[in-house]
Structure formats: structure tokens, C-alpha cells
Amino acid sequence: MNSKLLVNVDNITKSYRNKQIETKALKGVSLSIYEGEFVAITGPSGCGKSTLLSIMGLMDTATSGHYSISDINTQQLKIDQRTMIRNKHIGFVFQSFNLIDNMTVFDNIALILEHRKTPASEIKSRVETVLTQVDMLARQHYHPNQLSGGQQQRIAIARALVGNPDLILVDEPTGNLDTVNGDKVMALLEQLNTNGATIVMVTHDSRYVRCASRQIQLLDGEVITEKRLEGVA
């Protein structure tokens, strides 16, 4: 593989303490993601895959270990610095979409660019581009609660794309969708990866794992297997 190393996760642990009880969600996880890869992280419920994804997305902090993205070591970063990296380098797609109901589709997607203080004209053109990509341009003035689950997920994907992030993290994208919509969303993700996006997807649905180029299996907070998948160069 000649692609550039994008993400390096080195011996990450994550523990939660509630009074006397300590729960270890991750126990020394290490992995690397290269540009252009589509990596699926799989495992049973409670194995730590969403925790790992949230650490990679800088939504949570690891208890110990190192995590770097785009050559930036995230360990000692302050909150504002982490926010900036999220804004510039990472796009996150949530299982429950996490769109803001009192904003239109356009405004939801434009948020990232507005927080970067992008000029209004550029915002308009980039949002319309990604909306076209996810085939939702006609619904840009709708509110999320006026859309179906599949449509909301496509909007969430568009939001993750609009900032041209280095890394797209997708957490159970089909978890709240029916099969038809799930297939549509996965097809979209595949297309994005074909166009060069680096995607890390958490899923427990084995049907969609085949869309990825590499699979990492977690169990009880540890990586148990890591394998290349067929049909990917």
C-alpha cells in the first residue's frame, strides 16, 4: 500500500468509573488507517466499537494511549484545538442522524462552513454540491422532521462531506433504517469511497461489511482480527 498514513491509534484504553465500579470499554487498541481506505469496525454489542469511533472523532478522550490524525498528535490538545480539528479534518455520521430540527436542511449542512467563517457565496455553492451528491437538493428548505429516516441519514452524510474532511467516521449508518434505505445509504458511502474519501464505519450488519476494503473485529474492548476483504486493491 502506497497510500499515506492518515490515522494512527496506538494502545488506546478507555475506562469509565462510576463510584466503585470501573468499566474498561477499550483495552489497548492499536490500528492504522490509510488514505482512501474503507474500514469496517465490527463486533458484538458492547465491544467498544462506538467508543473507539468517538475517540477517533475527538468526541471523547482516551484514558491512555496515543491517537494522531493527519500527523496531528491529539493527546495534549485543548478543547478549542480539538474542536478545530473536528471542524477541518473529520466528518462524523451518527446512527441517530443528530440533525437540528429547528434548522433547515441547508442550514444543517452549512453549519460546519459557517463555523469556519466561510464566505456566504462559497457556502451556498458547496452545500448545493453535496446536496446534489446525495440527491437531496430539492429538499434543502425542508426541516429534518419533515424527512424520512433514509433522507435524514443522507443529509447527515452530506453534512459530514461538505467540509472536505480527511476522514469520514460513520457510526452504524443503517442502524435506524429499513433494508431499502440502508442499501441506498451504503451505496452512497461506497461511491464516496470510490471517489477518494477515507471512511471508517462501525457496523454490526454483516451484509454491509463487504462494502469495506478492510475489516477490524473487536471483542471486549480488544482487536481480535484484522483482515483485508475481497475485491479491493
Binding site: D80, T83, H115
Partner: peptide
């Protein structure tokens, strides 16, 4: 809270 968290997750700085 969820709305604020979403904004933070897409890169809004807390002070903004």
C-alpha cells in the same frame, strides 16, 4: 443540550 452537542461535534468552538 443535544443541539449544542451537535454544534460542538461539527466544529463549533464553545466560546462561539
Amino acid at each position: 443540550n443535544k443541539e449544542f452537542s451537535i454544534q460542538l461535534s461539527v466544529g463549533a468552538s464553545p466560546w462561539r
